[in-house]
């Protein structure tokens, strides 16, 4: 009886995950092993061509040659997503600790402010950065008005602008999980450390950081995974001069009319994220066992 009850209670969330996550991923997996139809879509026969294309592509003469293009795109995306994660961590950790140390009412307000950007559409927020950063934008106008520069600074349409856009978009995803772990830290531990003549650095390293690690790990995944597949910031702030995985997938599903290849890249990204999550979960479990 009890078991049936828990099954019933679990059913809605399992169904949601199954329908909205597992099924689309399986569809993508199936598509990635098929052949593209002339006007988009897929058809039989079964083929591993999409995966081969990541490394070996036909050149204009129809010869299969090794192409580093897609590897470069994947590498650049991973590096940018990694930098985004590190930068978010560097900003979010002190911010979360600051919030934890405020009185409860201020805490509520500050948390509300952190989640405030979610109330506005990401596209609009990203486009606002274009208006701020462009040659005729607010920042360049301010500097020019102050006489600091003669020529507008090239702030937009480069990797730096993409990085800024990614950090800005995903920062709240890092602050919230770190906050939730730091909030539960027993402050008496810190007092005890100080009593034992620990330096501030040592307190951070031996007490705060280990206790915050689950939150940091969760935040890192929440930032890294979407940053890896993001295509709004790269297209708007990067000016589409360089492709990232997200824009590449989008391209293959639209004007490229190569759904199997788009699916194959999507499967690759999902697999990478899934593996990272599994490793994380296992490490979390062994840490918990150790603590027990």
């Amino acid at each position: 009886m009890n078991r049936l009850r828990s099954l019933l209670l679990l059913a809605p969330s399992m169904l949601t995950i199954g329908i909205f996550m597992a099924v689309p991923m399986l569809v993508a997996l199936a598509y990635s092993f098929m052949t593209s139809s002339p006007y988009g879509g897929v058809q039989m026969p079964f083929s591993v061509g999409a995966y081969v294309q990541m490394l070996y592509d036909e050149d204009f003469d129809g010869v299969q040659v090794f192409t580093p293009d897609y590897l470069m795109i994947i590498l650049r995306s991973v590096v940018l997503a990694g930098l985004t994660t590190l930068a978010c961590l560097a900003v979010a950790f002190p911010a979360a600790w600051f919030i934890v140390c405020r009185p409860p009412r201020q805490r509520q307000l500050l948390l509300f402010l952190v989640s405030l950007p979610f109330w506005i559409n990401t596209l609009i927020r990203t486009y606002c950065w274009v208006l701020l950063l462009r040659d005729e934008g607010l920042i360049n106008h301010l500097f020019e008005g102050a006489g600091a520069i003669d020529e507008p600074l090239p702030l937009l349409y480069n990797d730096g602008a993409i990085l800024l856009g990614l950090i800005y978009t995903f920062l709240p995803f890092m602050v919230l999980p770190i906050y939730s772990t730091l909030e539960r830290v027993d402050h008496r531990l810190i007092e005890a450390a100080y009593d034992l003549y620990a330096s501030r650095r040592l307190v951070f390293r031996r007490i705060l950081w280990p206790l915050a690690r689950p939150g940091v790990a969760a935040g890192a995944l929440l930032v890294f995974a979407p940053a890896l597949g993001s295509f709004l910031a790269p297209d708007l702030l990067g000016g589409g001069r360089k492709l990232l995985i997200g824009s590449l997938i989008q391209l293959e599903f639209t004007s490229g009319r190569n759904w199997p290849f788009g699916s194959a890249i999507a499967v690759l990204v999902s697999a990478a994220v899934l593996i990272a999550m599994l490793v994380q979960a296992r490490r979390g479990r062994s840490a918990a066992e150790l603590a027990a």
Partner: peptide, 18 residues
């Protein structure tokens, strides 16, 4: 365009922006 040309355009385009 037929698939052959589309694929070639796609290649030029990715190479241009890689």
């Amino acid at each position: 365009c037929d698939e052959k040309a589309i694929r070639a355009y796609d290649r030029i385009w990715t190479k241009l922006r890689q």
